[in-house]
Write a protein that binds this DNA or RNA. Structure first.
Lengths: 176, 176
DNA sequence: TACGGCATGTAATCGGTTACATGATTTA
DNA sequence: TAAATCATGTAACCGATTACATGCCGTA
């Protein structure tokens, strides 16, 4: 075992950084932020400060290299290393942890017996939000070419949003 | 404004505690843990330590009362107060924050271009997990009577899991 | 009455989030 | 050239999670 690996345990954000560097080439933290925003961040948001701190950590462990511009904005461009690629692939090969859903509206519905009159408004808001999201995801060309991984992500988002929408709509019908 | 309210800002877990105390009556932290486990926790898990610390905080602000047994396990039973009920209802009436989804499997799929051969295994695991979950949720009588809020929660979980399952299954078919 | 597991609680770490701070480009 | 916004980064707080620690209770 080389001394460069096995330092800090990696978290989800680590693999997001590694994955984006692998998929879209060397980037600054700002580039990462932009790429997250239009892809992963849509269903797994990070505050931007994580995208500044995390690559720095990865550099310490040798999973990325950092080169800082000597003039101008002196920004840092990160590049994935072979060790980084290995870590990424190893993570990809592990079984995935179970999914979590955090839906405050659902929570309120669950406790709505304490004031049943809120259900209609809750559902109406949820329906409007989901319709907006679905419209966004249905933009032609959003996910890229058929069969690409970004396209699959969008399709997945769409099907889950539609199921969610159907639920809240049926709730509206049941108690108008 | 009385001095007892308006202290700490409340978080999601606060309302889960208040909601459970309102719905299921006075409880100990352990009772809360059990109730979370079979309901809310199914889609919004908390570590048990939160269910010990949070009611304590709520007691400080007068949203619950705490009575400690003087013998035996000396456990603390919490009861929601009128102020607590008011806080709960006020939260219920506010518009809900948008839902978040955290799905590590989806993340791996998104980055799977770095090693495409993992997709089949990923999908297979996901399908198996989702089938197990769905079987669990389909247990007759799990959600309680038709039209109850727990029942609606279960129905919602079912429809989302089914949409998720359909997605991963179609992925398996596309690339066997 | 001894033992094992259930129940109860607390302490400390670790990471996410918020907030601040500054410099570089662009545009009016 | 001044103002506004974009880009870049850092620091501190706060809460969630992990881990520990202990005591009660049922059972053998």
């Amino acid at each position: 075992m080389t001394p460069s690996d096995s330092e800090h345990p990696l978290r989800t954000v680590s693999y997001v950084v590694l994955g984006l560097l692998e998929a879209a080439g060397p980037q600054t933290s700002y580039d990462l932020e932009r790429n997250v925003e239009i892809s992963v961040g849509f269903f797994w948001p990070f505050p931007h400060s994580q995208l500044y701190r995390e690559p720095h950590r990865l550099a310490v462990d040798g999973l990325v290299t950092a080169t800082r511009e000597s003039s101008g904005r002196r920004r840092t461009v990160y590049t994935i290393t072979d060790a980084g690629r290995a870590a990424l692939r190893s993570w990809l090969a592990e079984p995935a942890d179970p999914a979590q859903r955090r839906d405050p509206a659902m929570l309120k519905l669950f406790f709505s017996d304490a004031s049943p009159d809120i259900v209609a408004g809750l559902a109406a808001h949820r329906v409007a939000d989901l319709e907006k999201t679905i419209t966004f995801l249905e933009q032609p060309g959003l996910g890229g070419p058929e069969g690409s991984s970004t396209r699959r992500t969008v399709d997945w988002g769409l099907s889950l949003c539609r199921a969610d929408l159907a639920f809240w709509r049926s709730l509206l019908q049941d108690q108008p």
